[in-house]
Design a protein around this nucleic acid. Sequence first.
DNA 1: CTGAAAGCGCTAACAT
DNA 2: ATGTTAGCGCTTTCAG
Lengths: 338, 338
Amino acid sequence: MKNVTIKDVAEKLNVSISSVSRAFNDTFDIKKETRNRILKVAREMGYYPNPIAKKLTQKKTFNIGVVVPEFINEYYSEVIRGIQDILVDLGYQVLIMQSDNNPERELKNVKTLVQNMMDGLIICPSVKSKNMDYYLDEINKGYPIVFLNRIEKMFPAKKVLFNNTKWSFFATEHLIYQGYKRIYHLSGSNDLGITKDRIQGFIKAMEKHHFSKDDYKVIETGILSEEAMATVQKLIDNEDLPEAFICVSDFVALSTISVLKQNRIEVPKDIGVIGFTETKMASLVSPKLSSVKQPTYKMGKSAAEMLMKLINNEPILSETIVLDGSLNIRESSLKANL
Amino acid sequence: MKNVTIKDVAEKLNVSISSVSRAFNDTFDIKKETRNRILKVAREMGYYPNPIAKKLTQKKTFNIGVVVPEFINEYYSEVIRGIQDILVDLGYQVLIMQSDNNPERELKNVKTLVQNMMDGLIICPSVKSKNMDYYLDEINKGYPIVFLNRIEKMFPAKKVLFNNTKWSFFATEHLIYQGYKRIYHLSGSNDLGITKDRIQGFIKAMEKHHFSKDDYKVIETGILSEEAMATVQKLIDNEDLPEAFICVSDFVALSTISVLKQNRIEVPKDIGVIGFTETKMASLVSPKLSSVKQPTYKMGKSAAEMLMKLINNEPILSETIVLDGSLNIRESSLKANL
DNA sequence: CTGAAAGCGCTAACAT
DNA sequence: ATGTTAGCGCTTTCAG
């Protein structure tokens, strides 16, 4: 039960604890021979340096904390894989905490990670994150933090973002080129910066192509299936259907298609639908879902690389990295070819 | 940059560090008045007890570690929500690590968590986890570990499992009752215990209903979409299609349906399909996917509760908790009603 | 009730 | 090249 300590090893070998420490840290000032002897016996005794004690004396922990809102789909999974692929090779371990989109829990998570002396943090804020003061405090203290996604473009901190405006614009334009004349945007929560960005891209496309205000609409639908379905059903009941929907997520897009189908409205023949933040399901469903793909893995990698620079005091050219995605056109938005 | 320590607070107030410690731990042997005075000033100074130092002196960290293979869908997300909902209320924080289904990384993760003095661990093993010796060592040392899912029924440790055999049996029987006369099981990796369990349930149903060996088949397909699609396409090419598929996951089920559709075979009219480990997508796609639902949230809760008992040395009635799920019949397996 | 002091396991000067 | 010692920030006897 009792753990073997550096002292136990030292006594067993009749050397000082510093020698054992040196052996394990492989410093220059120890004879290879002694080192090996110590290491060998230590292994036998099942000794392993206590990282807690180590943390107390050293600054470095080689632990990185990541806070994500949730794991409802592969989005953050891939982000984290990107992060890990960079950091694990550099000897870091990645500790993850889930905030469940609860700002209080998020803050508590961040504090836990800070207090556990993570060398740095990558934070993917919750929907209604309002903890920015605390974060700014830490940043000002010199604590390395990189934000990822869902953070205001103007927030004064290192961050990695997806170019929501641009790809929302492209997705909308794609619908326009397909000949859809009346387009609604089922958007996410207005509390989110990214929602505003996507709305902006949507409207930009509408205006560029001279849509009249009657021919487009932004409806805040949220990200829940039930909400989306209710919204679409209401549009049907009110006979206020557009020719195409651009949806905040694949999940909402599928919900939309599902309701339309229930009402014997066919996609893409009667109505076009395009999703956002592509999931693997997109190409497996029928009709195959067109969607905007985000570079999740790369976002994770970029955030991790940025964090490393921050930690190693290397110069960071730009505080904000904005990444591009791609538009995966499949069946659900293809009116033209019918 | 420099953090405020207990000493700083003590000096500022002209009290001993023990008093400050007492104030923060709210022990009985301190005057309420002193306590409040200390707390007040400490807050002002921005002091917060360093948990690392605390860990060094105390045994308890109120941190629980969770290792999961991945987050490709909401499965482990819900498991973790279950875990958190139990533990957060008890004052614990949950630290998560992702093994990416890599056994080495899994082991490294577990070691990191152990060395960081987590009070206990919940481990969801990888596909090819072979680290059992290390885990058994820790358990024998008295370290509280609970396993969840994907672990051999006979493994001598606390664990929470889903009754794969039973629900595989039920799902198969459902297909039988629908009138499908020839059924193939697209199974997961044979390295997994749960795969064997599901195969067992499948075969049990086949035998109970006197299917001849020619009328059922188990095909190891894995969990990748590409593999599943290739497998199904090959069956089509070989004119070896069954009347129904029971698939290892919703993902594989959707892949299967997708290939069938490409070949103008309709589900459920021509062929029935049922998934496993239901995802939210199941009810959104067309045809709506029948699937076996696992009690993910409850599994997380059970594991957390078991871990608490383990940590608090409370009696544990049964080493293994096996939970039941449900069969959500939707459209993809409904031949009878057509 | 409060303070002094030992110690948790380790690192990092400082000696030798 | 190795040993000695003073912390790291906190808890916890033990005195008083």
